[in-house]
């Protein structure tokens, strides 16, 4: 399985796997203009921009931007029982606090832990001080409505919110995966923390392959459901939403995280200007051939959304034989 490094090197090359160095040099620094980074690195800016471009996002409850306002937290919550607190400049899911129920001053986290209002205030103080932001820069805390996952998709995830990651290159969706939280990942949907990654066929929204800890799996480790049965509803809408996100930021190589909400439907969770490479393992396919195909397009930026989605569905559909072949 793991032969000489040199043959492995050429195996990866022939499979068209995108490596970290090439991603940084040939895609991120070439297609993502520096001035557009704050739009995605700051969740508050992303949210404002999304509302302006009429992209669906979870409702914004409040923004806390000074230590003084931390004391006013209870008032700002307006009696909401479910909400989610995020650092605006956090990365990699750091500093996100999800409260899924509250009663008599007790707040219940998504992992079942009960905490007090003071604990939440301390968390917000940490956010303001820049504990979770890159380089420790001062930050603001964004409080938004809790997402209630569409039950069709929720049944595959053990706990936490399953989200859909799209890689959108020059406005064209090129690869997709779904991330399912599980016990091993402690409710987090990050692959390197042990979440399950399910590769999704761009054309149909059906699962094609699944991995956990970079190793192929067939069933969800907690729920035991066969992952090959997973189909994402209103897939076409999700693709169009992803294209719209790319258009509003102007970023050429973008990771778009989407969710299916019970009430508002497909919604934007967050954007990433430096999307990770594990999506290739989840799809059992390399990104490079698809990226090259899009690079061959002369005027990808001028194509309308429906044209781009059609292009993706035509060229990046999974071969039927590839679906859960192993």
């Amino acid at each position: 399985m793991f032969g000489s490094p040199i043959s492995a090197f050429f195996d990866l090359k022939s499979r068209g796997i995108l490596g970290m160095n090439r991603r940084n040099i040939a895609y991120i620094s070439r297609y993502n203009k520096r001035h557009a980074f704050p739009l995605v690195d700051n969740k508050l800016l992303t949210k404002t921009l999304a509302i302006e471009f009429q992209v669906a996002v979870p409702e914004l409850i409040a923004v806390i931007d000074s230590q003084h306002d931390v004391q006013l937290l209870e008032k700002k919550l307006q009696g909401r029982k479910k909400f989610c607190i995020k650092p605006a400049k956090g990365s990699g899911g750091k500093g996100i606090l999800v409260i899924c129920a509250s009663e008599q001053g007790e707040y219940l986290r998504s992992n079942g832990q009960a905490i007090s209002l003071m604990d939440i205030q301390r968390h917000i103080s940490n956010i303001l001080a820049g504990l979770f932001s890159l380089g420790g820069a001062v930050d603001v805390a964004v409080i938004e409505d809790l997402i209630e996952v569409d039950p069709d998709m929720g049944r595959f995830s053990h706990e936490g919110v399953p989200d859909i990651r799209l890689i959108v290159f020059r406005g064209v969706p090129v690869m997709a995966m779904m991330r399912l939280a599980c016990t091993a990942s402690q409710g987090k949907a990050n692959l390197h923390q042990g979440a399950v990654g399910v590769g999704i066929d761009i054309a149909s929204g059906r699962a094609v392959h699944a991995v956990q800890h970079d190793t192929p799996i067939q069933h969800h480790p907690d729920t035991g459901l066969a992952l090959k049965d997973l189909v994402i509803p209103s897939w076409h809408c999700l693709l169009e939403l992803g294209c719209a996100c790319a258009d509003m930021t102007g970023l050429g190589f973008l990771g778009v995280d989407l969710v299916m909400d019970k009430t508002i439907g497909p919604a934007l969770l967050e954007l990433n200007a430096r999307p990770g490479l594990s999506i290739q393992i989840a799809n059992d396919a390399g990104l490079l051939p698809r990226l090259r195909k899009v690079e061959e397009l002369n005027r990808a930026e001028l194509m309308v959304v429906s044209q781009r989605v059609a292009f993706a569905e035509q060229h990046f559909a999974a071969a039927p034989a590839a679906v859960f072949s192993d």
Partner: peptide
């Protein structure tokens, strides 16, 4: 700084793409 090839540890990370499966 301009090397775009794979990193040594990526050969391990993407091990399921290499060799005979």
């Amino acid at each position: 700084g301009s090397y775009t090839g794979y990193r040594l540890l990526e050969l391990r990370r993407f091990r399921f793409f290499t060799g005979s499966r």
